Computed example of a mutant assay.
Amino acid sequence: MLKAIRYTLAAICLAASVGCLALWWRSMNVRFEAFGAIPVSPQPLCVTISRGQLSASFIPPGKVTHWRYESYPLDSRLPPPRLWPPRLEIYEGGFSIPLWLPSALSGAFGAVAIVRIKRFSLRSALVGMSVVAALLGMIVAL
């Protein structure tokens, strides 16, 4: 039973990692924005994904009354955004993270979920080293 739970967790983490990488690749040419009110805050939330960066911040109340989603192609003639290259930043009312960070973290969490705690075999060590090497290579490539 625990083996099935471990493998399910690893598969979910791998899917999340691949999804973040696909979103990172797509965000180089398209800007995604979602606006809307959330129940835990009186201020609406704005989530933006653009050029490999995920940004979330609160916007003044009254401008957005319901959730909406917009996407449009990026114009290569425009200057890059204020956060380029993508980096981790926390500012007043929001935060911004590069999309490779959640991808690497979910991949690492999936690798930890696969490794058995009680008996550590050579196969487990090779799988773990392969996943860590792939994650480090992904970070270097991005």
Rank of each mutant, 00 (worst) to 15 (best):
S57C: 12
F58I: 04
F58C: 05
I59T: 05
P60H: 09
P61H: 01
P61V: 00
P61C: 01
G62E: 06
G62P: 03
K63T: 14
H66S: 10
H66T: 13
H66V: 11
W67T: 02
W67H: 09
Y69L: 04
Y69E: 01
E70D: 11
Y72S: 14
Y72Q: 09
P73M: 06
L74M: 13
D75N: 10
D75E: 10
S76W: 11
S76E: 13
R77F: 14
R77E: 11
L78T: 12
L78C: 13
L78R: 12
L78W: 14
P79D: 07
P79I: 01
P79S: 09
P80D: 06
P81Y: 06
P81M: 05
R82D: 15
R82L: 14
R82Y: 14
R82C: 08
L83S: 15
L83V: 13
L83M: 14
W84S: 13
W84M: 12
P85E: 12
P85D: 08
P85Q: 09
P86G: 07
P86N: 05
R87V: 01
R87Q: 13
L88C: 10
L88A: 14
I90D: 12
I90C: 10
I90T: 12
I90N: 15
Y91F: 12
Y91I: 02
Y91H: 13
Y91V: 02
E92L: 12
E92P: 07
G94P: 03
G94L: 06
G94H: 03
G94M: 05
F95S: 04
F95K: 02
S96Q: 01
I97E: 03
I97P: 00
P98Y: 03
P98D: 04
P98F: 00
P98C: 02
L99E: 06
L99H: 08
W100N: 04
P102M: 08
P102D: 07
S103M: 09
S103T: 07
S103P: 05
S103C: 10
A104R: 03
L105T: 08
L105D: 01
S106V: 10
S106I: 11
S106Q: 13
G107F: 05
G107I: 00
A108W: 08
A108M: 09
A108V: 08
F109L: 14
F109C: 12
A111N: 01
A111D: 02
V112K: 14
V112L: 13
V112H: 10
